[in-house]
Design a protein around this nucleic acid. Sequence first.
RNA 1: GUGGGUGUAGCUCAGCUGGUCAGAGUGCCGGGUUGUGGCCCCGGAGGUCGAGGGUUCGAACCCCUUCACUCACCCCA
Length: 424
Amino acid sequence: MEKITAIKGIKDILPKDSPIWHQVELTARKVFECFGFCEIRVPIMEKTALFQRSIGETTDIVEKEMYTFRDRDDELLTLRPEATASVIRAYIEHNLLASDPVTRLYTMGPMFRRERPQKGRFRQFHQIDVELFGDDQPASDAEVIFLLMHFLQSLGVEKLSLEINSLGCKACRPVFSRAVVEYLKGSESSLCPDCQRRINTNPLRVFDCKVETCASVIAGAPLILNYLCTECSEHFSAVKEYLNDLKLPYEINPKMVRGLDYYTKTAFEVKSGALGAQNSLAGGGRYDGLVSFLGGPEVPGIGFGIGLERLIACLPSSDQNPYRMDIFIAALGARAQKIGFGLTQELRRRGISAAMDYSDKSLKSQMKRADKLNSAYTLIFGDKELDENRAQLRDMKTKDQQSLPLDHMLEAITNIFKREGSGL
RNA sequence: GUGGGUGUAGCUCAGCUGGUCAGAGUGCCGGGUUGUGGCCCCGGAGGUCGAGGGUUCGAACCCCUUCACUCACCCCA
């Protein structure tokens, strides 16, 4: 039979990698809850219109990267390419504003984008997403950025760099956009074909182009920071001041633009070396008009997403053994096997993790298995020992051995683990 | 969607300009040694050399096609 493989760009997370994922998720929960954020779990599918409206019709994500399909009743559905839209939808739908004027939420899970896979980029990837609604004060911008950096640092991520910018608001950004378009049109001929196209579709993206000639054109382009209205300008200054007070190093990148249309004012991005071309670990920003744009009340918001595959890629690699057994039962012979089976299940029922080989293998190979399972103890007995009514309990770490009377084996083992406080 | 690289044992890879080229290490299974496992020693299982076609007396190796993986562009977390 021909084997069926996983879908391109969609990866399994294998047992050996699970511990690090757990660690990241656990740390996230701890840190976020410390800042007063609560978990919300939102579906991985939404009506397509939700993403079209929030992310923007002309963005690459919506135009060519979404997994969209028709349900059996012809409704257009999409596998979520990011989480913010869903969280806002849920926030509006359940009127979370009513119970608390300021709502702090986080969520985590898989996202889907149909891109060509490469290092740090997959078609199904995982994000942790943090959103704060109902606070338009610069302090909340700083809080969210601080939260992000603190989270990454507490995981031990090295070579972090934080870039911030302000993207203006609906008052000042259009003025800036027009200035950019006007400027770019002046040197249109020296731009790459992609950028010539962008002038009309998404002019701010030209700032991201890596083609040399484009870069030199960009060097003289107008900067958003010079076009900010008074309100945006003051907001940005306050954010910077807060970050300074927190002693959080950052760089201002006036050319940073975000790929999603909904961002306003503060935008930020965290990069890490040692990641390859996809070096953006996390990104986010303020989106003050978005909640109402999605049919909700006029509520400001700010949030960020963290790419977990990328995050884990720049964590110190640990070849941690995913197994950790309290005890391995090495039973030699048919009678011993039978007793071992019952014993194993009974130990498990008591909360002591136990394992055994159900095929009657050599002691050597059973001991090898015990080692691989990282068991603390191994209980060894065969048919002969059954007659003598004694089994041997061996401490795998210290090689200490002791003899156990078979009739009391279960109690004896249970007591040992009670004494050691393991698993009970 | 556009480029480059790579496909040989479960894993990591050797295999020279086509002529014992089907191999090594590791892992797995069994045995020996040992104070009943870890080190060491011996043995064993496991590959249509990604797939299809072509050139040749002869192809893992050369050519074409195709697929997969990978890196980069694009874009983003």
